[in-house]
Design a protein around this nucleic acid. Structure first.
Length: 258
DNA sequence: AAAGGATACAACCGCGGTTTT
DNA sequence: GAAAACCGCGGTTGTATCCTT
């Protein structure tokens, strides 16, 4: 499948801005099988790095940046394929709460997953939830919703689908929560309702119309006030116990990659 | 079955930091 | 020490595919 230069809406081919070599039309857009083969063969022989010269010596009419991205996000043998598992979702949520959009740093904790993949996951899944709640993904209320609802539910489902020895994680899960029937599937990328609490009238009816959001996942908190702020049931100290710590992260990584 | 919308993912761009010349 | 080149990161966009109406 040959892709014409400048195709696929990525703009026309560009010229190297600072090269003293003859002007070469650079390709953009999707990579062809031939290009992938060239790149993979070259890297396997000469190793990674020095991407600009690599691109030239490999005979690729691509920028070094493009080659690097293609290798790291797609061709590299260690790239992990398939759905983001529950454990990985949990790690992403947890680590993002600590570091924000430091995708490459987060990716370090998920071997085989690329920063691009994690970033895409965040945008498509997590930001969707925030949108449904009609709040900013970085807002306090959404952070709290993740921290006190989403993450505990994920832990719950991981535990339910993993009949192993109880771990410290389980202590942090809401004891009143009931594992849902679909919890054994680790491939499901969408959260399933477990102990469902119906949205109240004071919650956004539009959000309820838009399908299951965090409200449907057993949100154990008080209603939204006039300012759109949520106040939580329970004191902060007890809720802090729901948070997972470094040990938990190591545990999850062991579960994932052992 | 077709059209339109939503979703997932690959790839580009700009920018800032680091290394090399 | 300065300039150029390189590298990596995060944000954004385009498109193929799936889903809904």
């Amino acid at each position: 499948m040959e892709v014409p230069l400048g195709g696929h809406g990525y703009g026309s081919a560009t010229q190297p801005s600072s090269s003293e070599e003859e002007l070469v039309e650079l390709r953009k857009g999707p990579w062809t099988v031939e290009e992938d083969t060239l790149l993979a063969n070259y890297v396997s022989t000469h190793g990674e790095g020095r991407w600009n010269s690599l691109a030239r010596h490999a005979g690729l009419k691509r920028t070094g940046k493009s080659c690097r991205l293609r290798w790291l996000n797609y061709l590299r043998p260690s790239v992990r394929r398939g759905n983001i598992t529950l454990q990985e979702q949990l790690l992403i949520l947890e680590l993002h709460s600590r570091w924000g959009n430091r995708w490459s740093k987060i990716a370090q904790y998920l071997p085989g997953r690329t920063d691009n993949e994690i970033k895409n996951y965040w945008r498509t899944r997590v930001q969707k939830q925030a949108k449904q709640l009609k709040c900013d993904v970085n807002s306090k209320q959404f952070q709290d919703a993740m921290r006190f609802v989403w993450i505990p539910r994920l832990i719950e489902r991981i535990q339910a689908g993993q009949p192993t020895e109880p771990h410290a994680l389980s202590k942090r899960v809401d004891p009143n929560a009931t594992p849902d029937a679909s919890a054994s599937s680790s491939e499901t990328s969408e959260l399933q309702p477990s102990s469902i609490s119906e949205p109240t009238e004071s919650q956004d009816p539009q959000a309820a119309q838009n399908g299951p959001g965090l409200w449907e996942y057993g949100l154990d908190m008080e209603v939204v006030n006039e300012e759109g702020n949520m106040s939580w049931v329970g004191d902060a100290d007890s809720l802090d116990n729901l948070w997972i710590n470094e040990e938990d992260i190591r545990f999850l990584q062991q579960q994932l990659y052992s």
